[in-house]
Design a protein around this nucleic acid. Structure first.
Lengths: 276, 276
DNA sequence: TCAATAGTGTCTCTCAGACAATATGAG
DNA sequence: CTCATATTGTCTGAGAGACACTATTGA
């Protein structure tokens, strides 16, 4: 069954307005290209972890081997493919590029960046994600992989990303950009700072960042993680008051000794585990 | 200057890894289609206003004349075009579709929706925005335009969108979806509920919603707007305590009478006007 | 026994919320 | 003057923060 139309425009108007929805969709499928041209959509993932032994907060970066921004450091990420949501892409690309497998529970959508010319290759829109992961599964494989954990220090409103072999990158929390000679690919400095500010803004209200401590943790460990994000010594956070503030979000699961001192109670995050 | 390559793949590897960035970008420009296929990107805008005379909170919807979701109500929005950011698109499409012109200050990015098959036409990613606008500039033109203000009532965790000529649509704040027979196009029910929850979550911390009152307003008017979002009577919000809580965000600008009773002081939102 | 670590308790100051009193203008 | 509305002031209980004390373990 083929209809005749005076013009392509008439055909479009017929199917959009007069035909049934089923007919419209069948016609739409057969059309060549859509009316508008389209951007690439990518995701970038800001992944934090914390190493207990080193008492270090870390951020996962990958070294770009190809243009553009060849040899620069960048956030793990990649192109969204047909049939997947951006959250799916986030999990897939993180696994592919870094070998780190994370779950839907540990990621959170942050912000979508769409400034024209933010990617020299052309029109690219990027959805950014934030993730907190428990362990540091890249240990021996560190030099073999392109993905590397950078240490992250906060000193006042300055964030320092450094790695013994790869120099350092300075980000300014107030200027919202990189201020060092070495800088990150694309606008990834802005994305990281958006992520960091998001963490600061929500840490007491919904302490997702404690997921960097894995399944369970003591109050003292939680204090250390908070202190890293605040850029202060964990001793400046009063143990008693900190515990009082966080207890509503925690569920006690265990009590065990870890080295010297009185054995600590261990907790897990209440909310997220209930959702499972 | 033309190079020869054994294969297309070799060519790509050469330009991505060996050539200079300038050479790479020149080559990239000339390539046919990108490696991945691409989604359409659209924006949708959740626009609230408040009418003082009617003491009504309102939401702007447009009636769809074309497939898909022909004859359904939908949020104003449209396709992002090359060379503009999604925020630009938001302002442009809102002006085009509704005649309402808004500024960058009055919009806020909400969330990006990318579930596969959320649009029957195919692959569409949507960035949602939230806007509060002052007056209700569609008055006489109401029946001529496709854009219409729906009244928005909250009763418990139920949101009722209604219009004297166009029936009503019920949304459930907890189930996060529409529960009425008449429903909105696409996943716009979910987008509206996301927006509403966002407002509730931030209203005391950063009372952007007061932009629905225009340039300046009295404390009593602010109470009425808050009450609408909370689904309670404005008399249940203690004037004294409410004022104490909001004063840090307000700047006094005037004192004038509006009808009966003691003349009220008028305020404007501090933060946003400073930014200008 | 002491040092290190963690849990528990106490005190104070501040602030949110309930309530009361005062100020201003319309009718 | 009276009523309606808005501003200003007071009181109290809950919670945050500073600090002190107790408990448990390893050396």
């Amino acid at each position: 069954m083929t209809r005749r139309f005076k013009s392509k425009e008439d055909e479009r108007l017929y199917y959009e307005n007069i035909a049934s929805e089923t007919e419209f969709l069948a016609w739409y499928e057969q059309q060549e290209q859509p009316t508008y041209d389209m951007p690439s959509v990518t995701i970038d993932n800001v992944i934090f972890c914390y190493n207990r032994e080193e008492d270090q907060l870390k951020l996962l970066l990958i070294k770009r081997h190809s243009h553009p921004f060849q040899h620069s450091w960048a956030l793990p990420g990649g192109f969204v493919q047909r049939g997947e949501s951006t959250a799916d892409t986030c999990l897939r690309e993180t696994a592919e590029e870094t070998g780190v497998s994370i779950s839907l529970d540990s990621i959170e959508q942050l912000h979508t960046f769409s400034t024209p010319n933010r990617d020299p290759r052309g029109w690219v829109v990027t959805v950014s994600y934030l993730a907190f992961i428990g362990e540091d599964p890249l240990l021996a494989a560190d030099d073999a992989k392109v993905a590397t954990w950078f240490n992250l220090h906060r000193e006042g409103n300055i964030l320092v990303l450094d790695h013994p072999d790869h120099g350092e990158i300075i980000l300014d929390l107030e200027k919202n950009q990189s201020t060092s000679q070495q800088s990150l690919a694309f606008d990834h400095d802005e994305i990281i700072l958006t992520a960091f500010n998001h963490v600061l803004h929500n840490m007491y209200h919904e302490p997702k960042l404690l997921q960097v401590l894995g399944a369970d943790f003591s109050v003292a460990e939680a204090r250390k993680v908070f202190a890293k994000f605040l850029g202060i010594s964990f001793r400046d956070l009063d143990h008693s008051n900190f515990k009082k503030a966080l207890l509503p979000h925690l569920t006690e699961v265990d009590e065990r000794s870890s080295g010297i001192g009185r054995p600590a109670k261990f907790y897990e995050l209440t909310h997220y585990n209930q959702k499972k």
